[in-house]
Simulated assay, not measured.
Amino acid sequence: MAIKKKRQPKTLAAGRPPVFHPRPKSISRKSTKSLINQHHLLEKRKRQAIAKGDKAAETAIEAEIEELGGIERYQQASLQGQRHDRGGDSSKTLMEWFKPCFAEGQAAPDRPLRMLEVGALSTQNVCSKSGHFEIERIDLNSQEEGILQQDFMARPLPRDDTERFDVISLSLVLNFVPDPRERGNMLLRTTQFLCGPERHSSTWSLRDFFPSLFLVLPAPCVANSRYMDEDRLIAIMESLGYAKAASKTTHRLVYYLWRRESKCLGPESPFPKKEIRSGSSRNNFAVVLG
Rank of each mutant, 00 (worst) to 15 (best):
Q124W: 01
R155D: 03
I135V: 15
E144C: 11
T162R: 14
S169P: 08
E163A: 15
G146F: 01
I147H: 03
I168N: 03
Q124E: 15
N141E: 09
R155N: 07
T123S: 12
Q150M: 13
E145N: 10
C127F: 10
D160T: 05
V167H: 07
M153S: 11
D151Q: 07
R137E: 03
E144P: 00
A154Q: 15
V126D: 12
S122M: 02
D166W: 05
S130L: 07
P158N: 06
V167L: 15
E144L: 13
H132P: 08
L148E: 14
L148P: 04
E145P: 00
I135S: 04
F152D: 01
T162Q: 13
Q150C: 15
I168V: 11
L157Y: 09
Q124T: 15
F133A: 06
Q150F: 09
L157G: 01
I168T: 07
S142R: 08
S122Y: 02
S130W: 08
N125I: 00
F165R: 00
A154M: 13
E136L: 13
V167M: 14
Q143A: 10
L148Y: 08
L157T: 11
P158G: 10
R164P: 01
E163K: 14
I135W: 02
M153I: 11
I168Y: 04
I135T: 13
K129R: 15
M153W: 02
D166R: 03
H132W: 10
L157W: 09
E163D: 14
R155M: 15
S122R: 08
E145F: 04
C127R: 01
D161F: 08
A154N: 14
R164D: 08
I147A: 05
T123G: 03
P156W: 10
T123D: 03
R159N: 11
S128I: 06
I147Y: 04
R164W: 06
F152H: 02
R155C: 12
Q150P: 07
I135N: 03
S128G: 15
L148C: 12
S130M: 04
S128K: 00
S130E: 08
Q150A: 14
R137N: 04
L157P: 05
Q143M: 11
F133M: 02
K129Y: 00
S169R: 11
E145K: 13
E134H: 12
P158W: 10
T123E: 08
D139Q: 03
S130K: 07
A154Y: 00
S130R: 09
H132T: 00
G131A: 04
L140H: 03
T123R: 13
I135A: 00
D151M: 05
E134F: 09
S169E: 12
E145A: 13
E163S: 13
G146E: 00
D139S: 09
S122K: 06
P156T: 10
E144Y: 02
T162D: 13
L157D: 10
S142Q: 08
F165L: 02
N125K: 01
Q124L: 12
I135Y: 03
N141H: 14
I168K: 06
I138L: 06
Q149D: 06
P156K: 10
M153F: 05
Q149S: 15
R155H: 10
G131R: 03
E136C: 12
E144Q: 15
P158A: 07
D160N: 14
G131K: 06
E134D: 12
M153D: 03
R155W: 15
I147W: 02
E144I: 09
C127E: 06
F165H: 09
R137A: 06
T162F: 11
E136Q: 14
N125Y: 03
I147K: 06
G131N: 07
